[in-house]
Computed example of a mutant assay.
Amino acid sequence: MVGTVDARLTELGIDIPTPASPVANYVGFVVTGNLVFISGQLPLKDGQLQYDGRLGESVSLEDGQAAARLCAINVIAQLKAACEGDLDRVTRIVRLGGFVNSVAGYKDQPKVINGASDLMAEVFADAGRHCRAAVSAGALPLDAAVEVDAIAEID
Results as ranks from 00 to 15, higher is better:
144 A>T: 11
101 N>A: 05
27 V>I: 09
123 V>F: 03
3 G>M: 01
75 V>R: 08
56 G>N: 05
26 Y>R: 12
92 R>E: 02
67 A>P: 14
34 N>G: 10
103 V>P: 13
45 K>N: 07
1 M>F: 02
1 M>D: 12
57 E>V: 06
94 V>L: 00
151 I>L: 13
34 N>I: 04
13 G>E: 04
102 S>L: 02
91 T>Q: 12
32 T>C: 10
32 T>Q: 14
15 D>E: 14
53 G>N: 07
145 A>I: 09
24 A>Y: 11
59 V>E: 04
68 A>V: 02
27 V>W: 06
10 T>S: 07
143 D>G: 02
123 V>R: 09
35 L>I: 03
91 T>D: 11
52 D>E: 12
27 V>A: 01
17 P>W: 04
63 D>H: 02
82 A>H: 12
7 A>I: 04
71 C>T: 11
38 I>E: 02
1 M>V: 00
107 K>D: 13
44 L>D: 07
119 L>T: 06
92 R>T: 03
147 E>M: 14
94 V>W: 08
44 L>P: 09
63 D>N: 10
53 G>L: 11
32 T>F: 09
82 A>Y: 09
17 P>S: 05
23 V>S: 14
148 V>A: 14
152 A>H: 09
6 D>I: 04
13 G>Q: 03
138 G>D: 12
16 I>G: 02
34 N>W: 08
153 E>Y: 07
126 D>C: 04
132 R>Q: 01
139 A>L: 11
91 T>V: 11
151 I>A: 12
147 E>Y: 00
123 V>P: 03
145 A>S: 15
52 D>V: 00
137 A>K: 12
140 L>H: 01
62 E>V: 11
137 A>W: 05
124 F>R: 00
42 L>Y: 12
135 V>I: 14
98 G>H: 11
3 G>D: 05
93 I>Q: 08
94 V>S: 08
50 Q>K: 15
153 E>M: 13
66 A>V: 03
94 V>H: 15
6 D>M: 01
149 D>K: 09
147 E>K: 14
130 H>V: 00
149 D>S: 15
85 G>E: 04
73 I>P: 15
96 L>D: 01
82 A>M: 14
47 G>K: 09
117 S>W: 01
84 E>T: 08
33 G>N: 09
81 A>H: 00
30 V>M: 07
32 T>A: 11
127 A>I: 01
45 K>T: 08
33 G>F: 06
101 N>I: 07
90 V>K: 06
86 D>P: 05
72 A>K: 08
121 A>P: 02
104 A>I: 10
125 A>T: 00
117 S>Y: 01
114 N>S: 15
23 V>Y: 12
101 N>K: 00
29 F>Q: 01
117 S>E: 05
69 R>V: 04
109 Q>E: 14
27 V>F: 08
15 D>F: 06
78 Q>V: 00
106 Y>D: 08
15 D>Q: 10
94 V>C: 05
50 Q>V: 07
89 R>F: 05
36 V>D: 08
137 A>C: 15
63 D>S: 07
63 D>W: 07
124 F>T: 01
30 V>L: 10
65 Q>L: 06
96 L>P: 08
73 I>A: 10
79 L>C: 06
3 G>Y: 03
49 L>S: 03
17 P>F: 02
96 L>R: 01
103 V>M: 08
106 Y>Q: 10
111 K>F: 06
20 A>E: 15
40 G>Y: 03
129 R>G: 00
67 A>E: 13
